[in-house]
Design a protein around this nucleic acid. Structure first.
Lengths: 209, 209
DNA sequence: CTGCTGACTAAGCGCTTGCTCAGCATGCTG
DNA sequence: CAGCATGCTGAGCAAGCGCTTAGTCAGCAG
């Protein structure tokens, strides 16, 4: 079993415009595994190429640089996380139900896609400036979604929080850190962990009972 | 103002046995800053030596390798964190009061010593095997202290938690992740953040009211 | 003065790195 | 069939890496 459902991150485009050769996906997959395990700088282009079953030179047919691979992984990973947060925040039910789903999905994603999650959250500093800016914007959007949902819940008298920004930080922080410590040997499935974290967060936000 | 109270981590030994020359401390300080900012592998021995105001060769008079510097930083950092957790867990008051202090101190430390915290928490994979084992033992001890304190609170009917291990993970996780996102520009002081996180965690653990 | 030590530097060695380039097989198109 | 694009390889380059070496120099004991 692959530890990362990486295929989810690069779906074939509906318009059929996704003509990228399969070899490019193999490179992405190999890069994610290497970056997650050893970090960007400790990973060599030879590692990635070998992992994708080709010679080092072939990498440069599909990507202009090692950093471009990191940038694509980082963009796609952040986009996926933001999409999932948006779907939960704009979903059905009151803010309590939506927050529960947000934490469940965000946490489970960081457990399931932990290799991608590690690259996305801990290799940011290696991104070229432009790519970093794009990714920072996505990160800000995620934080804003969470903040807005907490505020909505507070307005409805469902949450009781002293500092919304601090609470939002804590919520995203818990999810992100999952990608650091979660392993194959963890006793909880990503979904179980999501449910438990959902309970903990709702209590943290003072969602009564 | 230095962002890291690094001096706290390498106190002069009471027996006066600490005869290590001042240059060694300059190297440690420069290494912490570089490792925290760029990561272990992206940091060169020239970076560290220059930061300490000497030539690359001088580094090897005080440390046998670049990795030895990382190992010393990691050991000292983990020892400091464990000491702080132990002091809180064995302190005065009921489990609620002790947990509050634990979270306050653990969180504030990760904000104040965020550069050391980054090295300690995110550069583990670069440690030589032996050093990694030593540090992993310290990390386990920290987790055990937190778990034991939650269990004590539950036995006294003060906490209400479904899964102690998951709750303990969440508590340490929140603190650790602070070193990732906290910056000089953060609006909260480390102590304020500690107090707020203390409130959030106690609610998360169901410490009623 | 001599002889020695500890802290340091200039220079550079051997190796690995990210990346390039000439060339080759394959398959599509006219 | 030729002509050409695509996807790839083997060989290798320039730069930069961790670390070593040979040697300098201040300080101090005798």
């Amino acid at each position: 079993m692959t530890s990362t459902p990486i295929a989810e991150l690069w779906p074939t485009l509906p318009g059929g415009a996704d003509t990228r050769p399969e070899a490019a996906y193999r490179l992405l997959r190999a890069a994610v595994e290497s970056f997650a395990e050893r970090g960007f700088h400790a990973t060599t282009t030879r590692d990635i190429a070998t992992g994708a079953g080709m010679s080092p030179a072939a990498l440069y047919i599909h990507y202009p640089s090692k950093a471009a691979l990191l940038a694509e992984i980082s963009r796609a990973g952040h986009a996926a996380a933001l999409a999932l947060v948006r779907a939960a925040a704009a979903g059905e039910g009151d803010p309590v139900a939506r927050m529960r789903r947000l934490v469940e999905d965000f946490t489970a994603w960081h457990a399931r896609a932990r290799t991608v999650g590690r690259v996305v959250n801990y290799e940011l500093h290696a991104l070229p400036e432009d790519d970093y800016a794009a990714v920072a914007a996505l990160r800000l959007d995620i934080e804003r979604e969470v903040t807005a949902l907490i505020e909505a819940g507070r307005a409805d008298g469902l949450f009781e929080v002293a500092e919304v920004r601090t609470a939002a930080r804590a919520v995203t922080s818990l999810g992100i850190d999952v990608s650091r410590w979660y392993t194959d040997r963890s006793s909880e499935t990503p979904e179980e962990l999501g449910r438990r974290y959902g309970d903990l967060v709702l209590r943290m936000l003072g969602a009564g009972r």
